[in-house]
Design a protein around this nucleic acid. Sequence first.
DNA 1: AAAATTCAGTTAAACGTTTTCTTGAAATTG
DNA 2: CAATTTCAAGAAAACGTTTAACTGAATTTT
Lengths: 344, 344
Amino acid sequence: MSRRKTATIRDVAEAAGVSIATVSKFINRQQSFSASVEEKLRSAISELGYSQNPAARSMVTGRTTAIGLAVMDIANPHYANVMKGANRVALANGYNLLVVDLEEKATGVRELLEPLALRTDGLIVSARIPAAVVDWLAGLNKPVAFLGQPERQGVVSVGMDSVEAASLLAGYLVQQGFTRIGYVGYGRAAWNAERLRGLHNVLDAAGVELMEFDAEEPTSEAGEKVAARVLLRPDRPQAVIGCNDLVAIGFMTEARALGFRIPQDIAIAGIDNIPTSRYVSPPLTTVDVFSEATGEWVMKQIISMATGHSPDVHMPHEPLLVVRESAKRADGEERAGTQTNPEY
Amino acid sequence: MSRRKTATIRDVAEAAGVSIATVSKFINRQQSFSASVEEKLRSAISELGYSQNPAARSMVTGRTTAIGLAVMDIANPHYANVMKGANRVALANGYNLLVVDLEEKATGVRELLEPLALRTDGLIVSARIPAAVVDWLAGLNKPVAFLGQPERQGVVSVGMDSVEAASLLAGYLVQQGFTRIGYVGYGRAAWNAERLRGLHNVLDAAGVELMEFDAEEPTSEAGEKVAARVLLRPDRPQAVIGCNDLVAIGFMTEARALGFRIPQDIAIAGIDNIPTSRYVSPPLTTVDVFSEATGEWVMKQIISMATGHSPDVHMPHEPLLVVRESAKRADGEERAGTQTNPEY
DNA sequence: AAAATTCAGTTAAACGTTTTCTTGAAATTG
DNA sequence: CAATTTCAAGAAAACGTTTAACTGAATTTT
């Protein structure tokens, strides 16, 4: 395990009989070289197994060729796919990716972000963070992009259109003929207000009532709990929208466990279109927010900003309604009324 | 967006009227200070908003306080949870996490790993990689841990016991009375051979036939494809084990689409116990491999090695069978024979 | 053929820290 | 009270690069 120290640029220079400046220019392909020098450099480098020390390089250039990505929950498939997209374009551009999982924390975020900011050329933050932290980030000398966060000056704020995503779902449910619709939100998320707004835009116009519920976490477990609470009420909704697919799936599972048929007894829909939503029963109607493409896109933005270009404000994708089985109106069949719990 | 250059240790020294050595010792809490100096330092630092430049620091110390993590697929919930655990203990110990998603690639891995190796104090590699790359990693002056990779000298190889996980499942299926069992493997994964071995250990002893199938990828989509191919054969198995939960879930979904009842017509089980497996219908019988705990554990190992201690060879958790509905033997009911496809 | 330009390569300063020696002063000991 | 030890603080040398300014030879231009 213990070896001699790793070779430096100086060792290469000595072995090749040139100056270190020449070696530096060679590795960075900054000019052309005589055949003899080129050959000597090439063999010296491979013989010594030399590779650049990124710390030293970044000290003089002031750049790190790394981008930081902070998300609320690494294990949430939506964020995982954002990361996947971000990772892909980072690597393709010679950047490395530093990640930090905020684990849905609301405090101590700055302490987590600070080392990230110091080690990178730019930050992508997909989380709701305190205003003071946003201000601090804006004062940094680095490009910062927020995903799913309202606009704020000094930082780029991008990502899916939550308002539109929610409107799409509301429109579909209204069109299916539902007149009492529930929303299982997650009040502590930045995007929750937008989704609620999108819902109201459509529902208010259609004169449809919206019943709001709140999940403790944006997870399936929390969705189950809400379902257990909500479905036993006599005035339970006919259709329920989860603030994301995870919540919707938890809700659906608990509903089935309670003996409800989906969608005949209760219709359910989510937002995100995580891979799993295709594999639950019935398949979940949802809105695709193009998580992976969003990750790719925001990483492109950050890298372009970090290299001195201005960001492109154009959004990559509009949210897209994905109609599956979980929220169809029961054809012709009379809806189970509010007065009875079917099979229960 | 553009500000004056960020403050350096020299600026702090000047503002506080002390030498830079003193400042350095102060930030690193290396000695005690007179009250007056301490106060001046404290206010100078906060006034200038000074923070350490990690690149400069790491140049002289030779350490980076960062750990690299390479996984086959960021979006696979198993790996996502490994990352989650790894992230948690990294942050708790003042380390940052660099990740790279190998995207199931088999070539060009070294090129992806090299920058990671250069920027970190240690590497966790959860992927099958070519022998030459393993050798190169072993020659690095850094601790490297493999997850789900056979032992190799010079590197620590840890992670779940795939052999045992598979044996558990085989044992359960045999005990349920199944006599023709299928395995949907993923030949290109490092752990596949071990899982196969674990299966054979039990099945051969019990005199139960194992039918092997291969998925193109370790994903649900691939699982669906295999199901479409396998279930129409007259000699189809009575029970099928997916090489992981994703594959098993895809298989199950396609089976249901083809009209098979689970588990009456075909029993299905997976490995990993990803969160989703609880939410599919029926809930998936699987083996918990404690992804998150594994991530925590391996990160602890790497950090302890990176700080000069020797690694702990003790495994964190034995795999644990999680019995749910998808692989129960139909009680009393005669199994659907091989000659008919039910409801089809 | 002289003048100007290109070109391959070198010198040396700088980047922002940590750390090993020093250095006096203060505190402790005999 | 002299001798020793402890202690806070400083000077200066690294750490491994990049890059601006420079040099002299070779090539092109006039």
